[in-house]
Simulated scan of single mutants.
Amino acid sequence: MGELAGVQIHFEPLDGDGVLAERAVRETYQQLSRLGVRATRPAEAAPADSKAGASELLTLAIQIAPYAGLLGGVINATVFCLKRRMMASVLIELRGDRLELRGPWSQDKQAVIDKWIEAHSDEVEEGEETD
């Protein structure tokens, strides 16, 4: 298995709707669990330079081997709440790089996600052989 990488996922709620935001994070947590990914809710984990205040952001932290399939599954589970208009934005941090997505959803955003996953994924997934 490849080296684990820490991923921070920050959610910015829509107009201070804490109930909807908590539900969205809970649903994301459940989707990640179905992928076999264990997420935690760290205290004070919002980035210092985020547009929303630290107390407004909700964060999940995970440790994964950043293979394209797994990283893609994590990001798709994460942006689901953005697609459903449950969050104003989602910020994903991996190895010091950030991917920030703001609603509404579009195919252009999916293209940005695909490119980001390709750039940040380990090349060989478990079970694959190299020449």
Rank of each mutant, 00 (worst) to 15 (best):
P42C: 03
E44S: 09
L71Q: 03
E118R: 05
E93V: 14
S121T: 02
M1I: 11
V37N: 02
E129P: 01
E123W: 08
S33V: 11
K51Y: 13
I9N: 07
L58A: 06
R95S: 04
A119C: 03
L58C: 04
S106N: 08
G53L: 09
Q30G: 10
I92C: 00
F80S: 13
Q30F: 11
M87Y: 05
L94Q: 08
A68Q: 01
V79S: 08
I117W: 02
Y29A: 08
R34D: 11
V79P: 07
E125I: 12
D49I: 09
A61H: 00
T78S: 07
K109F: 04
L20R: 15
I62N: 02
L99A: 01
A45V: 03
E129Q: 12
W105E: 08
V90W: 02
M86E: 14
E123I: 06
R102F: 09
P104T: 06
P42H: 09
A68R: 01
Q8I: 14
E12Y: 13
R84F: 10
Y29Q: 03
V79E: 06
N76D: 12
L58W: 07
R26Q: 13
K51G: 15
R38V: 05
A43T: 12
A46I: 05
I92N: 01
T40A: 09
E22K: 13
E3A: 11
I62L: 03
E12N: 13
I117P: 02
A45N: 05
G2R: 10
A24M: 09
A111W: 01
Y29N: 09
S55D: 14
